[in-house]
């Protein structure tokens, strides 16, 4: 039995579904576009070619042989264990979800940092989004978008957004007062202050948020298998149902390997905040 709180939530979901169903439909189709585009690349390219490409990208981003070797080995092992197709589905969802989350979250974080009015509202919302158990997002996602990849992506975006919002907010707020004074005393407009002083100074913090966002996306994408997201998560759900230790461990290991690879890649981006790549 549920109380009036649950009834209200249900009514709200129904209301949204009824009046804004068309909008959600449109959103689903919009999300399909990057999923299809990236999916085409990931699914149709020869695994070996893709592994070489991944190696090249990691070398370019990290500029370190050992890290590149680790990342390349991770994908090679996934291929060797026979989880390539599942892994690519998962990777596709992770990349698109994280990208969408970042595109929404960074402006939200900037807004929270610059407006004393928006800050508490956004903060509360983020607390709510982060602590609400991840599975709960799946329910309205299914109602709004049906089964499949898109509801998984939407639930993931919501789940993975908070750290980027928080760390962007925090990063900008931690910019020393003197830096703001520098910007103002040299005649910055508000926009110049944001883009030339606040964002670059906050960049290491924002990058830490993006790293977190990608890790959270990965964990949520696995959960999204429960509503037909597919990929490694589906393998794990199968293994759970059949109590298949071998399958479960292998699929789980594949998730860990992807996590390691993505973490090393984004960490290199973050450290780039103090290195040479990200500098103007």
């Amino acid at each position: 039995m549920t109380s009036v709180v649950g009834t209200f939530a249900e009514a709200l979901v129904d209301f949204v579904e009824y009046y804004f169903g068309w909008l959600l439909n449109l959103l689903g189709r919009v999300l399909d576009v990057p999923l299809d585009l990236l999916g085409n690349v990931l699914y149709d390219t020869e695994p070996l070619i893709l592994i070489v490409a991944i190696a090249a990208i990691s070398l370019l981003v990290t500029r370190r042989m050992i890290t590149t070797a680790v990342i390349t080995a991770a994908f090679a092992i996934i291929h060797w264990m026979g989880y390539w197709n599942s892994a690519m589905i998962t990777l596709n969802m992770v990349i698109v979800s994280a990208a969408v989350a970042i595109v929404i979250a960074v402006p939200l974080g900037i807004w929270a940092a610059r407006s004393e009015f928006a800050n508490p509202v956004i903060k509360t919302l983020m607390d709510f989004m982060q602590t609400m158990p991840a599975f709960v997002y799946l329910i309205p996602a299914v109602i709004f978008f049906g089964l499949g990849v898109v509801p998984g992506v939407v639930a993931t975006v919501i789940f993975a957004m908070p750290p980027v919002v928080r760390l962007t907010n925090l990063g900008i707020r931690q910019v020393p007062v003197e830096m703001d004074e520098v910007a103002e005393s040299f005649g910055s407009t508000e926009f110049q202050k944001l883009t030339k002083v606040q964002l670059p100074t906050a960049m290491p913090s924002i990058m830490a948020g993006i790293n977190q966002c990608i890790m959270l996306s990965l964990s949520m994408v696995v959960i999204a298998a429960m509503i037909g997201g597919g990929g490694l998560g589906q393998d794990i759900v199968f293994a759970l149902n059949r109590v298949d230790v071998a399958l479960g461990f292998e699929a789980g290991l594949a998730v860990v390997l992807i996590a390691i690879a993505l973490d090393r890649l984004t960490q290199a981006l973050r450290d780039g905040g103090n290195g040479s790549e990200l500098r103007t």
């Binding site: 004074e181 005393s185 040299f186 005649g187 670059p200 100074t201």
Partner: peptide
Amino acid sequence: LREVRRRKISMVFQSFGLLPHRDIKN
């Protein structure tokens, strides 16, 4: 006032206030 700050008055700060992500010339 912004134009005055851009062209008439400039300021040097106690803890320098240099932008860490920019090289010296920038």
